[in-house]
Amino acid sequence: MLEVTGLHVAYGGIQAVRSITFHVKEGELVALIGANGAGKTSTLKAIARVIDAVGGDVHFCGEKISRLPPHDIIRKGIALVPEGRGVFPRLTVAENLAMGAFVRDDKAGIANDIEKMYAYFPRLKERETQLAGTLSGGEQQMLAIGRALMSRPKLLLLDEPSMGLAPIMVQKIFEVVRAVAAEGMTTLLIEQNAKLALEVSQRAYVMESGEVTLNGESAQLLNDPKVRAAYLGE
């Protein structure tokens, strides 16, 4: 479904991503793990066209999307939950969710999906009319995920959903990530928390200094001595 070939991202003279190649098949939950600065976020941003890649191609459902303007990516069915959440602080929770459905026109369907998000995250329902800037970090992460799902994407890109959150919040958020994936949502997950990412995903790619150094079934990577030493603190 998603094919990334030879993707290359640079900031000025600094190479963030050096020609990486990977793919995500329909219905899969794939993780991209690696240390801080390995190029994970840059990869995701380049796929979502937030930044320009220097080289390489991104194909989605057989169509080349690496030259599209950023506001057309969501219309192709790709929704990104950005690093740091990026909620609209002075819009209410309900308005943030409605913004997620900006590309849709079916009012009834949108209202329906907002209720669905409240079912995933009851906390958001309680805070419906509050400004998003007043939510806690975990609540903002819930909102950012709900907002992304509101576009009814074919592919969900999650950038560090556990970042800066209390363990209990991380657990809640990953319950939903798992549930959404179980319903058939194709997901590409980026995580620094390698253990968590390998536990929820079916396959994973390990990134180091802008390159994929390992890949395979998550269950196998979880038992790989190299991975255990480098990312699982053993």
Partner: peptide, 10 residues
């Protein structure tokens, strides 16, 4: 409030 994210929303 956040032009980059607004463009992600389409």
């Amino acid at each position: 409030q956040n032009p980059a994210v607004a463009s992600l929303m389409g």
